[in-house]
Every structure is written in C-alpha cells, then in structure tokens.
Simulated assay, not measured.
Amino acid sequence: MALFSRRKKSADDVVADHIETEDSAVDAPEVADAPSEPAEVTPTIGISVQAFRGVGAQAGPEVELPDADAAPAASAPTTAPAPAAPAAPAAEPERKLPLAPAMPPEQTETVAGMKDNVLLRESLKEVEQGATNEQLLGVLRQALQGHMYIRVNGDARAQISEGKPLAVAVVRDGDRQFMLAFSSAAAVRDSVQLEKDPTATSAVAQPVTSVLQQVVSGDFAGLIVDNASAPHRVVFPTELLQKALEQADVDMTVKSLIAAPREQDTAAKVGEALATKRMWVAVNEGNPGGQVGIAEAQTPDGKRFLQLFSHPLEVLALGRGDRPLPFEPLQLAKILSSHIDMAGVIIDPAGPSIVVERDALTSVLILAVDIDD
C-alpha cells in the first residue's frame, strides 16, 4: 500500500513524502465520509448501465472453431506473435477507444516514487466531452488492472496503524456521494489543488478490484476517476462497477500479467494461470452455413491462435459485434486437444496482448488427459 502526505504548503510542494510500502496494510478498508470535499465538481453520469447489462452470457451453446481453410473470424496478426488491429480504420466514427499496443506500456511516475496506472491514464486522455458509452466502457476495460490511488483526509498511515477506517474523500451531488479514484499521483495533486482551503491529505494506492469493491459495498452512487481532469474524467455508476466485478477474476491474474513489464517467463506464467482461471471467448454467428464459431486469428505463416479474453469488455473493445461467452479451463483443454493444429492462444487482442504458444500450455493440456483417463 503506497502513501504520500499532503500538508498546507505551496502549490509546488503538494506531494511531500516519498512512497512507502506497508505489507501489513489492509487491502480493503472500510469507507468513512470525508470531512471536506473538492470544490467545483458536479458529477454527471455520462454512461448508461444498459450499455453493459447482459454483457458476458452466463451460459451458451456449444461452439466450434471455424475450419482451418475458412476465412478467420478476426483479422490475423500482421506479424507473429503480435496481433493486428481489426480491419476497420482506427478513425472510423463508431470505433471504440484506440486499441493499445500489444506490449505493455513503459511504467512511468508523474510524481517521483509513485507509479502511474499508465493504461488507465492514457485511455482517459482519449475521452472528450460527449464521449460515447462504448468509449467509456473502453476506459473501464483499461481500469481493470493494476492499481488506483484514493484520497484520504488526514494521515492515512496513522489511520491504518490505529485500526481506524480510512476517511476517504468524496464528492457530493445533492443526496448522492461519489468516491474518488485516480490514475496517478499527479491526478491526486490536481484534485487537491481544486480546493480553496485544503486540509491534510494522503493518497493510498490500492488494487483496482479493492477500490471497486469499496464503491459497491459502500453508500456510493458511483466512482469518479481523475475528477480534476475534465473533460478527461469519467464517472462510473455503482451498478456498472458491480456488473464488471461479477464477471472479473477477483485477482485479475491474467490481466495483471499481460499489463506488467514482460519477463522471460511471462508466457509460461500465463499458461499456468489459464489452467485455473475462467476466460472468455468471442462468439460469432456469421460463418458460412450459419455455424456458430469462436473467433481465432491467423499469422501470415498460417499458424492458428484461439482468441481468449480476460473480461467481456475486452471483446467489446474490438467493435466486431461478437458476443462474449465464458470459457472454463476444461473447455480450453478440450479445444486444444481436439485441434492439434492450433498453435496456441492470443489473449486480449485489443491490447496489451500476449501470444501463448502450445508448448507453454502444458498445464491446460493435462486437464484434457485427466478427463480421458
């Protein structure tokens, strides 16, 4: 858990203390009303919960992979192993937020010693006034990894050490209150500077799922991300966040591995995770003969990769009209064992993404052997 303290100082000295790590800190402290609130911020819900309702079916029909000689269900990577963007130009009006590169971004610190959630920060830069539901869902997609900062009124270290609930900063809009979260320490600093007479403020870095769970379990109407960065800010209703959490891996294991700097064994770790974690596939019904199939990609040399997704929002981000369907490890094992020409899987083609080849999927393939035995 990362902390920094803010005392009444000049505008150039908002972030005072360097980051500290406390392994014993509570991951999901209770939420208390803040004694002060940022001024001149009136949240406006710009996203319809209906845009996300029903995304990710809980059950579905048995689906088949398209034939190897049939047209692939999705655009193939231009080079192996990185996936390419869908065929439609990125500037197309109905396009979602621009697709991220296959490789994770370089980690940066807009305030020294405090790491940004770069994917979230960069996706927020694409949001303008009048952003579409699809664009805002694209921001939520990138928010589902890493950490966020939350503002705490007073000394967060002292509150944690004394076992007190954190006095989390909120924004009120009539009878509604919204929790604040931030993509970077600089965004926290900008929020503090909105106040005419700011009180002592701390920032705490917490896993994204912990932050969202606090909003869902607390008396909040929603979550405002980077409230001082208009128009590059978003407001997510609590119902939307609850739906996203219901369909997410609480540990965000696969998504976190893909979004983190790549190590030599990253693909192997992802392969091991796929043996225990539910994923999603993109189901389409536009194949010849009306066959319902799972989207795959092909490399220029003809290798076939099954497309897997860490969350239903990853399917929506491609803008192809595919339907997300939950996919258990055993289903993946059966597909791979029955299609020996399948070279492996590609996860989250919208980016960051990773190709996991067959030799790194031993833990998954063993599941099919156990069933046969």
Rank of each mutant, 00 (worst) to 15 (best):
P77L: 11
V139D: 03
A87W: 13
E122C: 00
T79D: 12
Q107W: 02
Q135T: 01
L136K: 07
Q135M: 07
L136S: 03
S123R: 11
L124V: 03
L137T: 01
A84W: 05
Q135N: 11
T110A: 13
A85R: 11
L120R: 07
P77F: 07
K115T: 12
G146M: 06
G138R: 02
V139A: 01
Q135P: 04
A143Y: 00
A87Q: 14
P72G: 08
A90P: 00
A82I: 11
T108L: 05
P81V: 06
T108Y: 05
A76W: 04
P81C: 07
A131T: 02
Q145I: 07
L136P: 01
L97V: 12
E126K: 04
E128M: 03
E128A: 02
L140A: 10
V111L: 12
M103C: 05
E134V: 03
G146P: 11
E106P: 00
K115M: 12
A112S: 11
T108I: 13
N117L: 08
T79R: 12
L124P: 06
T78P: 00
A74L: 13
A100K: 10
E122M: 08
V127E: 02
E94Y: 06
P93D: 07
L120H: 09
G146N: 10
N133R: 00
S123M: 03
R95Y: 09
R95W: 09
T110H: 09
L137R: 11
E92F: 13
A102K: 11
P105V: 11
A70W: 02
A143H: 04
P105H: 08
P77C: 07
P77I: 03
R141N: 12
Q135S: 06
G138V: 02
M148W: 09
T78G: 12
E128H: 01
A100S: 10
L137W: 04
P105R: 09
A143D: 06
G146W: 02
A88W: 08
L120P: 15
A88K: 14
P81H: 09
P86C: 10
L144N: 14
T108K: 11
S75M: 15
A143L: 13
Q142Y: 12
R141G: 08
N133F: 06
G146D: 06
P93T: 04
L140I: 03
A131V: 01
A80E: 11
A74H: 13
V111Y: 05
A87P: 05
G138E: 01
P83Y: 02
P86M: 07
A90N: 06
T110N: 10
V127L: 04
L119S: 15
E92P: 00
A143P: 03
K125M: 03
E94W: 09
